[in-house]
Structures are given as C-alpha cells and as structure tokens.
C-alpha cells in the first residue's frame, strides 16, 4: 500500500494582517521528497508553520488536507497524530523535561491507552537512533533543547523524526547553521526514512543540502507563491545561476519596485 497524501490548494496565510502566502498549490505523496527553495522572505517557513498550525499564522483562504481530512480543522496535536511532523527552524527549549521523557510521551501520544511502548523497547530504539545520528548518549537525559548548540537542536529534531515516524514530514531549514559533518549526519537520518509510506517537504535556502538528499521534485517560491516546479536539475541551476533568471522568465518584479510603479 502506498503512503499518505498532503494536498495544499490556493493557500493564503497572513501574520498580523499582512498576507504572506498568496495562493500556494502543492501536493506531497508518500514516497516523494519535495524541496522548496527560494530567496529569503518569500514565505517558505510560513508555509511550514501554517501546515502545522502555528498560533500566530492565520489561514485566510484555501485548503490543506491529509488523505482527504481537513487539516485546518484540526488542533496542532491532532495534526501530529494524523501523521504530520514539522522539524522546526527554532525549536523551543523546555526546561526540566528530559529529551527521553518527552520522546516517550510523544510516542505514547500516538498509541492507544494501554498500548504504551515498553520501556526497554523504547530505550533500545532510542539508543539505536542516537548512535545513527552520532549524538552523545547523554542528550537523552538533558533537558529538551536547553543549552543545546544550533547543531544539537537540528540533530534532535531529526532524532524526533526518526522516533515518531510520521507519514509526512516538513523540514524547515534543517540545514541552517550546520557544518558539513553535521549536515551529512542529518541527511543520513532523513534518507533513512525514505520509503513508500513517507513523504517529505524539505524547505531550504541552499542547494547544499540537496547534494546529500536527492529530491524528486523541486519548487521555487517567490512572493508567496510556488512559481516554478521541476526535477533535481532545477536545484542545480538555481545554485549555479541564482534566482534572477526565473524572475525574468516569469516577469516577476521585486515587490518594492512593483509598489513604486503602482
């Protein structure tokens, strides 16, 4: 059987009454890796936050469905239990709660009452993933994200991804602030997830990450819309030539200039 389908149609999103997304259409299916690229401030992270239900983002128009179910009607936790996962760009620090206690609660949140994961099984699988991601064992007993370096936070997000095994994951700039070794490890973790039952939306600024994770589809976002889609070759061209050629090709004016002309 094949995996889940996340379908985004004509999505408009505002933050504090300023419209950031102006009609995004995108479909991510199980087994597919999608990359979203684009210059700063074009709404890539807004898209990620809106899918997960960040309290500050307001969807004003359009739909998001997961296997036909209305995601926008769900609370944040319901979205997660339905199969969505967001690796955040800036994960919160939760003082006093150890990474392992948190992970166990999160795993059990998806399971039925009375069917909680056995402690030994949990520890075994956690150890395995910690090893795989080259994470020091003591991270499990440290408070969640508290005092973590930027790289440790990103690895911890991928650790959670591997432990929670969602149907569709969104990775919001998982590569930012990583040195090359950390980037390789994080990519290794993401690649391990690849299967027909796992779809992934990778939001990134740089083509660099895509040297390690090969996307099936690449989308370019500008001014709150997906303006161009293609295969992995599109990412390579963006790396080599930047974004100007797309603007020219599609006749996109910079917003400031457009406002001046208006």
């Amino acid at each position: 059987m094949s995996g889940s389908v996340l379908e985004i149609k004509n999505l408009h999103v505002s933050i504090e009454d300023k419209e950031i997304l102006k009609g995004v259409d995108l479909t991510v299916k199980g087994g597919e890796f999608h990359a979203i690229m684009g210059p700063n401030g074009t709404g890539k992270s807004t898209l990620a936050s809106a899918i997960m239900g960040h309290p500050k983002y307001e969807v004003t128009e359009g739909t998001i469905t997961l296997d036909g179910e209305d995601v926008l009607e769900m609370e944040v936790d319901e979205r997660a239990r339905a199969g969505l996962f967001l690796a955040m760009q800036y994960p919160s620090e939760i003082s006093g709660v150890t990474t392992s206690d948190f992970l166990r609660s999160a795993i059990n949140a998806k399971r039925e009452e009375g069917d909680e994961i056995p402690l030994m099984k949990f520890i075994k699988e956690l150890d395995k993933d910690l090893d795989y991601l080259d994470i020091d064992q003591n991270m499990a007993t440290r408070y969640l994200n508290e005092g973590f370096s930027g790289g440790e936070k990103k690895r911890n997000e991928i650790l959670q991804l591997m432990q929670l095994k969602p149907d569709i994951a969104i990775l919001d700039e998982i590569d930012s602030g990583l040195d090359i070794d950390a980037l390789k490890v994080v990519s290794k973790g993401i690649n391990k997830m690849r299967s027909d039952n796992f779809g992934c939306l990778i939001i990134t600024h740089y083509q660099r990450l895509l040297n390690y994770i090969t996307p099936d589809f690449v989308h370019v976002m500008m001014q709150g819309r997906v303006v161009k889609s293609g295969g992995p070759e599109l990412a390579k061209r963006l790396e080599a030539e930047g974004y100007e050629w797309i603007k020219e090709e599609l006749g996109i004016e910079d917003e400031e200039t457009a406002e001046q002309n208006a």
Binding site: M52, D77, A80, S92, I94, F102, S105, A109
Partner: peptide, 19 residues
Amino acid sequence: LQMYYLMSRGLEQEEAERL
C-alpha cells in the same frame, strides 16, 4: 510557543501543559 512545539509532536494540550 512551548505549547505549540510540544503539541506539534502529538501531545494533547493538557499533557503538554503538564510537562
């Protein structure tokens, strides 16, 4: 934002607050 983060991992509001 702490609540959003915890709930984005599937924890119900009450459980997230408890943590």
